[in-house]
């Protein structure tokens, strides 16, 4: 049992565990210190209207093809069941088993990236995510991975802590003083990620998290299939990148606790803010068109990436 958990990487890797433990401690400290503020925040009512899904779900027909394998990166993992009817139907609808693997993966990428809106909420499975039409970047990555695995393409998570760009800071952090305290305390607790799919001997990155509208609103390029958002619009904290088959156990519970029990008003504020951002991005893209937007913004935005070197440092 434990071996299986380990093998499937349900147990978070060491560096992620370290991040979480540190983040957990810092967070508890902030929470305890701010009980009063927290109570106020909990009482606060923020109007928030959940989004409506903006796409149709293809119908499932018995006998639809799906790859069921127990191989690593193909099998179901936490919150990511590629065998679910809804997933199989969508995979077939998107051309699994018809298109060549690269083309299919790219179309699955575009579907997830463009159609599902970012909203902050506790983790849940790919089926509710698909039915709902929104979720966090982790929800979206899971959906992309499930679509790949259902079509027999190995897929995994690439997770990391990010150094936020300022616009993100404004959206997520600055809007809420409590959130800012969290942020300052947490430092590295901000987990973000992308999907990766294995085609022709290579892992190809899929930045499904941000929709084009949101990228336009924050002035960053619209990432394409195979394009890493690291280096383009933010930096991964070096050393924090981890590639895993599954989301770790405990993340779902933790996110539920954080968002539902501690400060639902903060989450509602953030989500409203994201929706405003999406609206702003939509206007920008309508005005100048996606292609022109991309051309303009790409010229100016680059960030070097680094691989850590030890040089002559001695670690005791």
């Amino acid at each position: 049992m434990l071996r299986e958990l380990k093998d499937k990487e349900y147990i978070p890797p060491k560096n992620m565990l370290k991040l979480f433990i540190k983040g957990g401690f810092a967070l508890s400290k902030v929470l305890i210190k701010n009980m009063g503020q927290l109570k106020k925040a909990r009482k606060e009512r923020i109007e928030y209207i959940p989004l409506k899904r903006n796409y149709e779900l293809p119908e499932y027909k018995p006998g639809m093809k799906v790859v069921k394998s127990n191989e690593k990166y193909l099998r179901p993992t936490l919150y990511c069941n590629p065998y679910a009817k809804e997933i199989v139907a969508l995979a077939n609808h998107l051309g699994a088993f018809e298109k060549d693997p690269y083309e299919y993966a790219r179309d699955a990428f575009e579907f997830v990236k463009r159609n599902l809106i970012l909203q902050i909420m506790p983790l849940d499975g790919v089926v509710p995510t698909l039915k709902r039409g929104y979720g966090t970047c982790l929800h979206k990555i899971s959906l992309f991975i499930a679509l790949c695995r259902a079509a027999g393409l190995k897929a995994r998570y690439k997770l990391y802590a990010i150094a936020m760009i300022q616009q993100w800071y404004e959206t997520f952090v600055e809007i809420d003083p409590l959130m800012r305290e969290w942020y300052d305390a947490m430092g590295y607790f901000m987990l973000h990620g992308e999907g990766e799919v294995y085609i022709d001997g290579k892992w190809i990155v899929a930045d499904v998290g941000p929709t084009p509208e949101r990228q336009a609103a924050t002035g960053i390029p619209i990432t394409k299939f195979g394009e890493d958002s690291i280096g383009i619009w933010f930096q991964a904290i070096p050393g924090s990148i981890m590639r895993v088959e599954s989301l770790p156990l405990g993340l779902g519970m933790a996110s539920k606790l954080l968002m539902e029990k501690i400060s639902p008003a903060s989450v509602a504020k953030m989500n409203n803010n994201i929706l405003r951002q999406v609206e702003k991005g939509r206007k920008i893209l309508q005005e100048i068109g996606e292609e022109e937007y991309n051309r303009r913004v790409r010229k100016g935005y680059k960030m070097p990436t680094i691989e850590l070197e030890r040089k002559s440092i001695i670690f005791e």
Binding site: R310, K311, F315
Partner: peptide, 21 residues
């Protein structure tokens, strides 16, 4: 190099490696 780049350092002993890099 965007000035923000120099804010993207890791924590712990990796901070030392980052400075070295």
């Amino acid at each position: 190099i965007p000035d923000k780049f120099f804010k993207t350092y890791p924590s712990g002993k990796e901070f030392a490696m980052w400075l070295a890099t």
